[in-house]
Write a protein that binds this DNA or RNA. Structure first.
Lengths: 256, 256
DNA sequence: GACTGTGAAACCATTCACAGCT
DNA sequence: AGCTGTGAATGGTTTCACAGTC
């Protein structure tokens, strides 16, 4: 069922693919706004956002009819409409859990504050960090997690801890009422129905690049496609380049 | 045209969606491997990777027929095959450009080294950082970019600079022969044909979360859908919550 | 009996091309 | 004349369901 009465358009339900691009359009629009541009065509905006214009128009059409035929889109107005659709016209209270290098980078990241994300708390388990002042906030001990979430009305938790700690912390923030989690730890978090998790994985992107890079240079296939003795388990002498056996595979942290 | 003779299967050309999931499977497999698991069914592996089993099987079928009916997949063997397909059985030389908090986090990230990504160089423009030793490397000055790329045979550049510097640096690494770029700066980079760029955007994910979070709580729609005076340009009194006008919109850096 | 590999069906996303408005 | 908004066409991805293999 859809939601209530069918107002004008945008019969609720913007495709995920579109939602994922709206922030990109928003950024491009802000940049145009700063340069004093008042009106922009789908062609121009699409170029600035790195997509093609048909896609841009289809995406925007899901929000409503905010352009003017023969003219284009008014920059300020479109910024407002996209911001509203994304929920950026209200503040979101964010807690960052794990204050290693990544947590610090996130804490100080200007792109959050300027978009309505207010980092209200930093938490860590390491006594050496607890109490320190970072980006204007005092780092609290992870034991205080539930209290801090409650105190500040945190609605989004950012997990920037080692993988080993992530699931347990995720469980705690969810139990404390948080329903949106942004996970930087290299694990698949499981959460109950109704909780949204998004993942940013610093190494997955590199692996995807490696795949394409390899393709450019002849690819795998031919060379040594099957120098692995299937059926004989144990490590055999498989891969062309053995990795030093000490490099304990994974479980690895996001931190230095 | 496909590639040469049609070996067994996997007539070259793995869908992008599949490529993007292979690293996730790989991680799940490594974790199983560490726990001593020898064989895994599509159902179990899918659960560990957070996808459904039909998708997993279809994905793996693009690489080849590496499972055994009635039994499942041999963990070691599958790790090897996926690694090979992703190009992780060879080393990739990476340079990190921009050594703020994010650059540091990346430099020390264990998940890179253990996957065949060798961070060979760190570069920055800030004289206060140049010469410092971070994660076992001495930070070089950005002026030396081309020399460093050449010296080490860098094939992947990671850009972790403020947005304002990103495009120019990207142009330089591309001119120096790099064909894969991982971009953390909040800008759309343009590159010539044949160069692969991937983007990780710390704030886009948060914005997507905000969108869904807002949905849970009644959404926009009803309330104040059109309190913006279209046609009257200038800032009007639009959004429900005005942001402090000082918060200079974007152009913002990834750094603290 | 158990589980993979895969056609076929269903679904979603992108692109095309043009009617419709300004 | 110029540009948006959108049906229709295309292409890609996910899911279903089961034949084939161990």
């Amino acid at each position: 069922m859809t939601r209530r009465h069918n107002r004008t358009r945008a019969e609720r339900g913007i495709p995920e693919a579109t939602v994922a691009r709206l922030p990109v359009y928003l950024r491009a629009l802000h940049s145009l706004q700063e340069r004093g541009v008042v009106t922009v065509s789908s062609e121009e905006l699409a170029a600035a956002a790195g997509v093609n214009s048909a896609k841009l128009r289809k995406d925007l059409s899901h929000l409503g009819s905010y352009g003017t035929r023969g003219v284009g889109y008014e920059v300020d107005y479109l910024i407002y409409q996209i911001s509203r659709e994304l929920g950026l016209t209200q503040d979101w209270v964010v807690a960052i859990i794990g204050v290693g290098n990544l947590g610090r980078a996130l804490a100080g990241y200007g792109g959050f504050a300027s978009r309505g994300f207010r980092v209200a708390a930093l938490l860590d388990a390491d006594p050496a960090v607890v109490g320190a002042e970072i980006a204007g906030l005092t780092v609290r001990h992870i034991d205080e997690l539930e209290r801090v979430i409650d105190e500040h009305g945190v609605s989004i938790a950012v997990i920037a801890t080692p993988a080993s700690a992530a699931q347990a912390l995720c469980d705690r923030v969810v139990a404390a009422g948080v329903t949106s989690v942004l996970n930087f730890a290299p694990v698949v978090l499981s959460v109950p129905e109704g909780v949204e998790v998004r993942k940013v994985d610093l190494s997955i992107e590199l692996q995807i690049l490696a795949f394409h890079e390899q393709r450019k240079a002849g690819g795998p296939g031919e060379s040594a496609a099957d120098d692995w003795s299937k059926g004989l388990s144990g490590h055999g002498d498989g891969p062309r380049r053995e990795r030093p056996p000490g490099t304990s595979e994974y479980i690895e942290a996001v931190e230095a």
